[in-house]
Each structure stands twice: as C-alpha cells, then as structure tokens.
Design a protein around this nucleic acid. Structure first.
Lengths: 172, 172
DNA sequence: GCGCCTGATGTCAGCTGCTGCCATCAAGTA
DNA sequence: TACTTGATGGCAGCAGCTGACATCAGGCGC
C-alpha cells in the first residue's frame, strides 16, 4: 500500500513490494494470487458480514429491504475506516486493471447476496435482480461518499440512494 | 476466436493467434490493446446504439423506460447473432480475466447511458442509478437467455426482467 | 514516371508478472 | 532423537506487453 501510494500501482514492481516487506517475490505470490489482490484483502470478510445481514433480517422485511440492510452494514464498516477507504479508492480509480478486479468482487458479492435471498425463499430471477440492484445502489452511494466533501454519513447516503432507486423504478 | 474455442483462452498464445492470422505478434498488439480485447471488438458500436436509443426515446418516456428501450435494442442486436453470442459467452464464462473485462465494459456502458439520461434532463444520482439498474436487468435477462433452452426471445426476457425489477423494488 | 510521405508491418531486445520445481529450515510431535 | 509439516528461498522459464528502429507498399504532387 505504501508503495502503491508513493509511486502508483503500475510503477510498483512486485520485487519492490517483496523487498520492502523483507520477503521474496516468490513468497509474495504465495500470499496473494496476483499483484492486484493485495488491495482486496478484506473482501471475503466483508462479503460474509453482508450475507449474514441478509440472513439476519427480520422475516417481515421485503427482499429489497433485506438487501438494503446488508449494504447499510457495509456502509457502517467502511465508515469506520474512512481514510483507508479513500486512499484505497484513489489508487483503484487511477488504474483500470484494479477497477476490473473491484467489479468482479462486487459481482461475486451480488451473487452471494442472491444466494442469501434464495435461502430466504426468494426465487429466481427475483433474487439475483434484487441483489444486483442493491449493488448498484451501493456503488452509487459509495461514489457520492468518496467524492463528497468531508463528513457525509455513508449509511445515510445508502438509504437515500435506495429510496431514489425505488422512486426511479416506479416510473415516475 | 477459432483458437479460443479449440484450445481455450488461456491455452492459446498470442504467437499462435498471430501465426494463424498470418501476422506478427507485434502486429496483433497494434490492433488489440491486449489478448482479451479481441472478444470485445463490437462493444463500442453496441454502446453507440444504446446511447442513441436513449436519446431517441420519446420525451414522454420515464428515465427507466428510456433505458428499458435501449437494452431492448441490445437484445434485438444480440438475438441476430445468437450462435456467435453463445459461443462467445462460453469462452468468457470459462475465464475470470474475461469476466473482469466484460464487467468493465458493462460499467462503461452504464456510464454512457447515464450520460445520455443526463442529456435528457435527468439529474444525478438518479441518472446513474437508473442506468446501473438497467444494466443489472440486462445482465440477468442475458444470463437467462444464454442458459435457457433454445428459442427464447431475448427482448421479451428483458422486458419481463425489467417488470420484475419494478415489482421487486416496489417492496412487495 | 519520379521522388516523397504516410501508414502498416516486421524485427529485436527487454521488462515484468507469474508458475513449477526443488532445497532449506524452523517448530511441533511421537 | 527422528519425523513430519508448513513457510520460505532460489532458480529457471514462459508469456504478455512495450519501445525503438527498419522496411515496404501505396497514394500524391510534380
């Protein structure tokens, strides 16, 4: 991360990372599948939390609101590491390869959320559709939060974006 | 494409592609930014069509329906090349790197569609949200079409998926 | 018809990401 | 004490991709 910030992602070589970490290049690749994966270390954990949030939503909650609750959880978790998140996003924004990786992580997350909905009795394609819509809401709200001035509340942005989606799909 | 089908994407080397095309490896990279880009040759054209569809939608159409019309256009165009699309998708499905590339193309498309909505007077974040929702609908409908039996009508699947999204976000 | 310019291609050298294979070494265990 | 196991190092090698320079064919002005 230090190196990615200092010289940029592309300009940083795996050999340099390994050296600064006091390790070998070979060892680096035993810990991370590739050079990009470093930036997505916490993704699996985050995904677990969100899946649990969907599973733990009250039975009375509509699918879209179970998903809403889950992405709010994501908002809370990210807000705790605001500066780290911002720095990370700056790196990603500067590099298409990293954006690709981020998108596939989000797609994987959508798929996992769809599975969680499925376990709540939601059938296809409604489950996938709802999950993808939730991810879309998250993407937009996260973007607003990152670009936004300073002290915006991410969970609130997420709620508002979800409401906006509901309004927009109502065909107003 | 022949080689990707014959031996798979990963197992195909750029040198082999160049050889079969009667060219040099260097020349290959002058035509395609990288090995994956070959499979996304028509993406820019498709994007143009969809943007035009949004721009050309009747003024009376709600944003979500302008987007709906656009992705229906995509459906029509893809349906014309059904076998090609299926083959292409088989290759992509077998390779994460290609999925990443596809996702960033879809993200770019969403962004372009949001721009088109913006030009229709839709403000942010509604425009981006609507565009992303449309892409989500397209992804799901396309998946159903590819996995589906044989002669399903893609534009119809898209319409139905959009209706499903509307139902699902209504918080039923 | 002649020289000239331009764009596409070839050639070559080189870096970097990534992998397979084998050796080493430390720590825990019977 | 010997053995196993997991993490690391070292090394060779492939493949993707790039920069720099040469070549060559076709179009164009003259």
């Amino acid at each position: 991360m230090e190196l990615y910030v200092e010289r940029g992602f592309e300009q940083t070589t795996v050999a340099e990372i390994a050296k600064r970490a006091g390790l070998t290049e070979r060892t680096f690749f035993r810990h991370f599948a590739d050079k990009r994966e470093v930036l997505f270390w916490g993704a699996a954990t985050l995904q677990e939390h969100l899946v649990n949030a969907v599973a733990g939503a009250p039975d009375s909650a509509a699918p879209i609101d179970a998903i809403g609750a889950a992405i709010e959880v994501a908002g809370v978790l990210l807000q705790e590491r605001r500066e780290g998140a911002r720095q990370r996003q700056t790196i990603i924004a500067a590099n298409p390869e990293l954006q690709e990786r981020e998108l596939i992580k989000l797609a994987s997350l959508a798929s996992a959320l769809a599975g969680a909905l499925h376990r709540r009795g939601v059938s296809e394609p409604a489950a996938s559709l709802t999950a993808e819509a939730g991810i879309a809401v998250f993407k937009i709200a996260f973007g607003l939060w990152i670009d936004g001035d300073s002290e915006q509340d991410l969970p609130r942005l997420i709620r508002e974006s979800l409401d906006e989606l509901k309004a927009v799909t109502a065909g107003k």
